[in-house]
Design a protein around this nucleic acid. Structure first.
Lengths: 204, 204
DNA sequence: GGCGAAGTGGAGCATTTTTCTCCGCTTCAT
DNA sequence: ATGAAGCGGAGAAAAATGCTCCACTTCGCC
């Protein structure tokens, strides 16, 4: 039985993951580990104690991101009655969590699909998000030719911090703005589509 | 008088810029220069002869990208009569040129604004693109609250290659698809807006 | 409030990566 | 045919990064 961690150690571990999340989102999976340690406010030795090497850190980061995605998708589906609102809510929450900036950056390094620990969580999150999308589409709130992959990738594009001199918080504010633009665009496209609902109704 | 370059030297210089363009777009401004040389099909010595250091190369790359942007904006404005078509055409052409992937990557390293050689070209391109946007907006083909910066940044988001295992060409194909989605979204948003044209007409 | 287990930090060595020079050989253009 | 221009890439030098190790500090239990 693993005995519980000491309180300071847990705090440090959380800070490390948080720092890693931001730095990986901004600068990719190769960011020097001593920078992660510095931003987390711990020594490099502490980082290496908790995560024996880069891969261990990135793996933990991926698991964290995926778990939060599942929770966010769940919350959005449960708490919003309107299908389009549920979709919008999920997208906004995913943006705040930075998952769509972190996970793609990890893809080159961690095998999200086949890893025995990450794979199932990833599948679960995909299933949940897919169902949110399907519901929106069935309700006529999403264009028919916009796929799961399209939405996911656009979210990635929007979530990835732009290069440039702006402080990180300003960049994130812009990302929020562009996400709203995207959400509005989806809604407008769906609204302008000729309804095909008739074809879906049971004849007679 | 600088005498003209030997034909093979010119070819090599072009190949180097092309290779740098793709690699900088994909991997940022820190890509190892010998990789650039390899992709260009030249020796590292050749690269260093033409561009004494990394900054010289990136500077040349920026100038090239800006110049092409100006040409593209010009062509779009001249050759399309419909204002929205002109905007769409400019966006598509900018995507093909990779300028919106390359220039932001250079921003951290080259001062596009204040550089005496780059600054003016950049201003010219901004002026042209702004006018394309203004015309589209005046024609009611662009939502009012979507700014020059919004469009530019969304183009950057779409143009930057996503991380992941896909070959570069597949990534670019996806970027094209998402640009079309963006263009359609802009159109749909504008179409759904209450017309304010009345306010702009001369009273009486 | 004392004690041992757990945790910490960062100097510094090892390794890898990247830069850039140098020069003997090749190619172009006249 | 010739010489000026160009080429390539080995390898020395420098920079970036990975990671260990251990003297010191802190926590949490009694």
């Amino acid at each position: 039985m693993a005995r519980p961690m000491r309180a300071d150690a847990r705090r440090n571990q959380e800070q490390i993951l948080l720092a890693a999340r931001d730095l990986v989102a901004e600068r990719g999976p190769d960011v020097p580990l001593d920078e992660v340690a510095r931003r987390a406010g711990v020594g490099i030795g502490t980082l290496y104690r908790r995560f024996p090497d880069r891969e261990a850190l990135l793996h933990a980061l991926a698991l964290d991101a995926l778990t939060r995605t599942v929770a966010a998708a769940h919350a959005a589906a449960e708490q919003e009655t309107d299908p389009f609102d549920a979709l919008a809510r999920y997208l906004r929450e995913a943006l705040e969590l930075r998952v769509s900036a972190v996970l793609p950056a990890l893809m080159d390094v961690v095998d999200l699909g086949n890893d025995p620990e990450l794979g199932p969580v990833r599948e679960k999150s995909a299933r949940l998000v897919r169902s949110i999308l399907d519901r929106a589409r069935t309700a006529g709130a999403l264009p028919h030719d916009v796929t799961f992959e399209d939405v996911g990738m656009m979210l990635v594009r929007i979530a990835r911090p732009l290069p440039g001199p702006l402080p990180a918080e300003a960049k994130h504010e812009l990302a929020r703005r562009h996400l709203e633009l995207f959400i509005r665009g989806l809604g407008a496209l769906a609204a302008g589509e000729p309804a095909v609902a008739a074809e879906l109704r049971v004849p007679g």
